[in-house]
Every structure is written in C-alpha cells, then in structure tokens.
Design a protein around this nucleic acid. Sequence first.
DNA 1: CCCTGATAGATTGTTAGACAATCATACTAT
DNA 2: ATAGTATGATTGTCTAACAATCTATCAGGG
Lengths: 221, 221
Amino acid sequence: MDLRVAPVTVQAQAVDKLREAILSGHFAPGQRLVEAELCRELGVSRGSVREALRRLEGERLVASVPNKGPSVIALGWEEAAQIYAVRVLLEGEAAALAARAASPAQRAAMAAALDTFDAAVAARDSAGRITTTARFYDILLTACGNGVIEELLRGLHARISLLRSRSMSRKGRAEESAREMRAILNAVVAREPDAARAAAAFHVRAACETARAVMQEHLAA
Amino acid sequence: MDLRVAPVTVQAQAVDKLREAILSGHFAPGQRLVEAELCRELGVSRGSVREALRRLEGERLVASVPNKGPSVIALGWEEAAQIYAVRVLLEGEAAALAARAASPAQRAAMAAALDTFDAAVAARDSAGRITTTARFYDILLTACGNGVIEELLRGLHARISLLRSRSMSRKGRAEESAREMRAILNAVVAREPDAARAAAAFHVRAACETARAVMQEHLAA
DNA sequence: CCCTGATAGATTGTTAGACAATCATACTAT
DNA sequence: ATAGTATGATTGTCTAACAATCTATCAGGG
C-alpha cells in the first residue's frame, strides 16, 4: 500500500480541471483558450494558468501558436488513424501481458466492470458506458504491469476521446463493443496471451472503423 | 515544402536548451533543477523558467515534487525495461511502414546515414556515432509516415538516452549495432516489411540486453 | 550519546502589476 | 474595392513581493 501524502498545489488542480474540461467537451476541439478567461473561470493567477497550459502542451492536449495563444488540439482523420494504429499495437500488448500477469482479483474486477458496462449498454446509459469502459481499461492497464504502456495509452485515449464523443452512440456499436471487450476478458481470464492480443487488436480496429464512418458522415453533413 | 515561419519565443528556446542540457548529460539524471540557477544560466526570468519546466514535465523528462521542486527523471531498470518493450513494438512497426512507404530518396538517405555511422564506428568517434544514429532514426521515423509513432518514439528515445550514455561504448557493441541497423536498412530497401519489423525488433532487444548488462555492472561497481 | 525541538536560510508556490510586441478588426481614404 | 491606418484585445516577458515549506544546523534534555 502507498501511504504517501502530497500537498495539492494550485496548478496541479488547474491542470486537472483544465484536462477534465477539455476531455469532457466543455472546451471544444480547436477552441482557443484565452488566458484571461481561464483565470476568471479557475480563479487563479495568470502565471498559474500559463504553467498549466504548458503542462498540457507537453501532454499534447493543447497546442500553442506563438503570439496567438493556445487552443485545444483538433484531430484530423489522418492523425486519428495514426493513433488507432498505435493503439492496436499497445493495447494488444497490454492485453497479452494482462493475460499472463493479472492477479485473480484483477481478473474478477475486470469481469465486474464489464458486467456493469453491459448493464449500461442495456439501459442505454451513455454516461455509464463511458465511465465503465474507463474502469475496464483502468484495470487492464494496471494489470498489464507495464507503466509506460499505461502512460502512453492514457495519453492516446485522451486525445482520441476528443474525437470519439459520439462514436459510441452509433446504432449497434455499443453492443458490438461489449462483445469485443468480452472476448478480451475471456482470453485474459483463460490466460491466453495470443488470443487476448488478437481480441484487443480486433476491438481497436473495429473502433477505428466506426470512428472513420462517423467522421465521414459528419463531414458529409 | 513547408514555408511557414514562426517567431521564436524566449521559452521555446528555454525549453530546447533545457531539453538539450538534460539529454547531453549536462544535468545528470536525478539532479535537482533549482529555478534560480536556471534563471542565471539561461538568462531568463523565473516565470519563463517555470513554464519551460512544466512543459518538460509534460514530456516526462522532468519530475516535480511539490514544495521540493523539479529534477531530471531518474530511470530505474524496471522502467527502462518497459520502455524497451514498447520500443520493440513501435520501432518494429515504424520499420515495417518504412519498408512499404519510404521514397527512393529516403532509402538513399538512410543508406548514406548508415555509411557515415560505419565510418564513425571504424574511427572510434563516439560523438559521431550518436549524431549519425540519430540521423538514421530521423529519416526512418519520417519515412514511416506515422507522426504519432514518430512523436512517441522520440520521447522514449529521449528518456532512454538518459540511461544509454555509456552502453554504446561497451566493447564490440558499436559493431554489433552497425550490423543490426544494416539489417533494418536492407529490409527497408528490399521493401520487405516483415523482415524490417523483425530486424528492428531484434536491434532493440539487443540494445536492451546491453543496457541491462551495463546497468548491472554499474550497480555492482 | 541519542533524540527532540528550535532557529535560520534557501527554495518553492503564488499573486499582482507593468509594458512592449503582436494580432484581429473595423474604419477611412483613395 | 483595395490599401493603409487606427484601435482594442491578447500574448510574451519581466520585476517584485510574500507566505509556506523544506533543509540543515545547533542547542538542550534524557
């Protein structure tokens, strides 16, 4: 158990709030982030806001143009496709590692998270789908035992989620997604790394296809 | 061709200088980075230094402890091994993509870079080995056409290089490395993605083994 | 002698204010 | 309509200040 206690600095909070605001869609992709406004909304000084923005810039959630200021990154299809390509590799590896290394408790927790996901799908609860998916992945990434993979995938999920906001609400996609995740879980529980890798890769490729379709519809409209 | 011109802000320079100072070993891994000193050395205000540090924190080159301040990250073997594991995947993919997509000019440039690397190895020029290796990878990463892979691998290379400083100077490693990179090049030139992936993965695994050996000797000493 | 507590100096966290440089926009004159 | 100009908003940067926290040293008590 980790008993360390750390003081919560103002900007750590600013970073978290800003990140959350971006990921939740409170700030739209591409939207300019004006320092003075953020100062008011966050209730902190300009210096702290600027430091928080730099941090998010380093995380590639925010992009700055000199003398024009920072804005939320806007993903084109090009870059989104590249992210999915990397996710295929990393999530496949994470699933394979988890199939080898996950503890019984973690396997159980993944199963439980997936059950609640199924419930959220059945209840057409889109908010619930998001949180339970996140929970499933949280456990999977922890269970894989590779902190670097975890860190990189968190970053990629964050970026792709700027795009994904509506993919899941596409007709039938939630159910498909549930089946694909169930396949990952089954392979992990059965301790079959190769099957887990294949299932995870399949899931990401399917998500990629859906995202592409949604984006094209969106562009057409 | 990209004709855009961008103003160079003070902190962009501060970030670059700091990053370079860290990667070149001017600041050792684990070393504390005191704001006041950096202000003097860089000749910029505290605010700019702090913003630069936040940025590098986002890039995971610097880690901050609240009320104690930032320091250069120190890699343990655990994390280094995890980074190598990811590099196997990503560099394998990058090589496979390059084998498919590289332009004739890029193939030629890779060959040229590798020739100068061979020359640096023959001349026992360790600085030359580093720059020419970097050049080879620069071209490979550009040629692979996936900017996300490029970005992630640059970050991982930066982190691992904090550890790698002396791996290459291990007896015989430079020559081995040259042969392994030649194998990657040959596969790319022959447009054989699978062979390129295997060669790149083999190269990273070998580098990982060497790093492990060097680190264990270092700990023993 | 070791532990506790106090003191002082250094460093960070945070804010406020200032000003030049740059950008965006609307307006004007030709 | 185009070019040029004035104007306001925003960013980039610095200085100055102060409270909170850390670190190390040192004195006193058991």
